[in-house]
């Protein structure tokens, strides 16, 4: 993989050039103590002091609410449809996503690309360049190394930056052609990099469990009591799913603007909600919170590996940080190992 070096002082100039090209730039911005991906007008707004943003960057490819098509009712009662228009999707650069978020693009793409292509997702993905930044710090919720990830993993990023030296610059690994094109925009701002090893500058994320063992035990625990004991305190909100970089469940809704026209939209949904699987008849195949917790874990750690050859978790720890009642995923996964 080609490597370059960019001094910290040049980074803003490079991102400025990237923006001048008409691309939208999304990057972490800190406000009221919470860091989130926002569209930024200037690189000065960017903050990289956080371990992890409150939300992942998945909204760039899978927005929380998105129009799938529109309909218009004609005076004669006929209905005409207006298809999803990808030309309205802006070219976008996401700067500063962590390797766990970049790794989550694979499971997301796995779900949206399963046998049939999901056009809104794929058209957005086609227009995004992901600039990852390695982790130099982690916290008690991080467990990327337990699920096959790494604080310096380049998987999913088009360019991966790692803060090196005493923080005076970044090692830039150019992963894809899209990444290369973006680096080329920077021209001379990027220097040659030799003899820099990013490994010296990465966070040490402890391995918390053997994921193979967890998956093996979990697959055999469908009827077990563990789901109930772990989820007793779960409140059944959707915080974990909505902050998760790999959760893709959605609802399809109608946004009718009067009786004449409207949009079919999709919006984020969560398997943790009690109504998610409720039939009109009143029957609910997953009627208790423990069944829904079981679905969440089995989907990510058994069904997805089985059906899509990818796990639905990259160890970012967001679900655990966001949970109002501290459902700590790494801790709960570890409990399966000892079943």
């Amino acid at each position: 993989m080609e490597q370059k070096y960019i001094p910290k002082a040049s980074l803003k100039a490079w991102l400025g050039k990237v923006r001048d090209d008409g691309r939208r730039l999304y990057a972490p911005v800190t406000e009221n103590g919470k860091t989130s991906f926002r569209r930024v007008k200037s690189a000065d707004e960017i903050s990289m002091e956080h371990v992890q943003t409150a939300q992942s960057a998945k909204g760039v490819a899978f927005p929380r609410t998105e129009r799938l098509f529109s309909y218009v009712r004609q005076p004669d009662g006929d209905v005409t449809l207006q298809d999803y228009d990808p030309s309205a999707i802006p070219d976008t650069v996401v700067f500063g996503l962590r390797p766990c978020d970049a790794a989550a693009l694979k499971p997301l793409s796995g779900i949206f690309g399963w046998d049939t292509e999901d056009k809104p997702f794929s058209e957005r993905m086609r227009r995004v360049v992901f600039v990852g930044v390695s982790c130099s710090r982690c916290d008690a919720f991080c467990f990327c190394t337990s699920v096959g990830g790494h604080p310096g993993s380049a998987e999913g990023s088009d360019i991966l930056l790692t803060v090196v030296g005493d923080g005076e610059g970044y090692l830039a690994e150019i992963v894809t052609d899209r990444g290369r094109a973006l680096v080329e925009k920077g021209g001379d701002l990027f220097e040659s990099a030799t003899g820099i090893s990013k490994e010296d500058y990465l966070a040490e994320v402890p391995v918390r469990f053997s994921v193979e063992e967890v998956q093996r035990k979990m697959a055999g625990a469908f009827e077990g009591d563990i789901w109930k004991s772990q989820s007793a305190r779960c409140l059944g909100c959707g915080a974990c799913a909505f902050v998760c970089p790999a959760c893709a469940c959605f609802d399809i809704q109608e946004n009718a603007r009067g009786s004449g026209a409207g949009d079919r939209i999709r919006c984020w949904d969560s398997c943790g909600f009690s109504l998610f699987t409720l039939h009109t008849s009143g029957h609910n195949p997953r009627s208790t919170q423990s069944q829904r917790w079981r679905q969440r874990l089995l989907h990510k750690f058994c069904y997805m590996p089985q059906r899509l050859s990818v796990r639905g978790c990259t160890g970012c720890g967001r679900c655990s940080r966001a949970c109002p009642v501290d459902m700590n995923l790494a801790e709960h996964l570890g409990e399966f190992e000892h079943l």
């Binding site: 779900i111 046998d115 469940c249 959605f250 399809i252 699987t277 058994c302 069904y303």
Partner: peptide, 12 residues
């Protein structure tokens, strides 16, 4: 209807 929205699965 096409395996993406996450509702209808029975096990895997």
């Amino acid at each position: 209807g096409v395996g993406k929205c996450g509702r209808c699965n029975v096990g895997s």
